[in-house]
Design a protein around this nucleic acid. Structure first.
Lengths: 152, 152
DNA sequence: CAGATTATCCCATTGAATCCCATAATTACC
DNA sequence: GGTAATTATGGGATTCAATGGGATAATCTG
């Protein structure tokens, strides 16, 4: 399996640790850095999470752009400067830094939300509301997913 | 790991030394020169930092521009002439020369800011303001980083 | 060349991050 | 439905990074 799927609820302990869901850890198990990279979403009160390999690919993409464009600067400052490398402890837990907790308004319970190639970390109540909104919008638009390479 | 990620706040001591974050040192640990190369940013009141290997690549890129063009002259003068090689002491610290401190208006506290393949050194307050601006612009533009070779 | 100043090396301290083990809860499997 | 294996959680012990300061070496200056 190589996709982050489903939603998992775990708890923050007093030291600020949370278990990363076992299935998410499995997705990352092939990577050299055993842990996740996390940064504040600039669209939602949530945390964006992924493996280091994806960050490296992002960096390579950025290197191709104009070396001195403003957009590139803004993106690296919003993403790389904000990103935290959070390594697993021996039991598959990470420590979420305060700045991320504040941004996502996470206190006790933590929702790990699969997004395919990446995942998000939410306050459970906030995520539920967000998900309801999303489902409503999809329904209204009758949005359809076009499958790549599918000519049906 | 080969990326400069996250932002770290360290302190200048009376002798003008700062610890380079351990994770940044790890990125540079494979290089022959154990230290960083630093020069004044010409866009921000900040210091640009990187490993010597990247400077060498930068040199090659500049070489591909028109020889003797005004742009090339300006770049080499702004970057290579200004660059300082700052070696680590036994504890992973460097001494920031006065001309760099002045340019970045750094007094006591120092922010090391990851930018992927490179990093920056800022006055913490100045950086916070700068990052907020960058995040706002990214949000407004709905800018996203496209992954190379990713057709999603 | 002597004295003064600056830079480099080395070690001590502290506080935070990490490791390690114990227990509880959940899931999978006979 | 009971047992084993995996996963989640809690807390003590240990390690390591950041920092401060003294000692030694190099440089400048008159």
């Amino acid at each position: 399996m190589a996709l982050f799927l489903s939603t998992f609820m775990n708890k923050l302990d007093k030291k600020g640790r949370v278990s990363v869901p076992a299935s998410f850890r499995l997705v990352l198990s092939g990577q050299s850095f055993q842990g996740i990279v996390a940064f504040r979403s600039y669209k939602f009160p949530a945390i964006e999470g992924m493996g280091l390999d994806r960050m490296q690919r992002l960096s390579e993409s950025v290197d191709q752009l104009d070396l001195f464009s403003e957009t590139q600067e803004d993106l690296t400052t919003s993403i790389f400067a904000d990103a935290q490398m959070l390594g697993f402890d021996g039991d598959g837990r990470i420590v979420l830094p305060q700045i991320l907790l504040d941004h996502a308004k996470i206190a006790e319970r933590v929702a790990f939300v699969g997004q395919g190639a990446t995942f998000q970390i939410w306050n459970p109540e906030a995520f539920e509301a967000h998900q309801n909104e999303a489902r409503k919008r999809v329904q209204e638009k009758q949005a359809t997913l076009k499958l790549r390479g599918d000519h049906a």
